[in-house]
């Protein structure tokens, strides 16, 4: 049973890494700044998944959560600053 599962569990982070690489190439080739941000989110999700799958340790889950929260916050901040920030008077 475990001999069947072992190649699957080692192939799962590889697939996530390939998705991240594809999203990276899409970001670099895209000209419009606003259209880059969805692809950046795709890359962040893929990286967070592969972090959680890469190492068999319970702290890896917390690292994935921290990276997920941080990178989403970063992407939101970039989008908010691009649209001109909060207007107050």
């Amino acid at each position: 049973m475990s001999a069947v599962i072992a190649p699957l569990t080692s192939a799962a982070p590889l697939i996530c890494g390939l998705i991240a690489l594809y999203a990276t190439i899409r970001i670099v080739c895209e000209k419009n700044t606003l259209k880059k941000l969805p692809h950046l989110n795709v890359m962040n999700f893929a990286i967070a998944a592969s972090i959680a799958l890469l190492v068999n340790h319970w702290l890896a889950l917390i690292v994935a959560v921290a990276y997920f929260v941080g990178s989403t916050l970063e992407a939101n901040a970039i989008a908010s600053a691009w649209s001109g920030g909060l207007k107050d008077d």
């Binding site: 916050l73 939101n76 901040a77 908010s80 909060l86 107050d88």
Partner: peptide, 14 residues
């Protein structure tokens, strides 16, 4: 002084 929307919600927990 630039104000971002993130700066109202995030800093407490972060």
């Amino acid at each position: 002084v630039v104000k971002l929307e993130i700066m109202d919600s995030a800093p407490a927990i972060m």
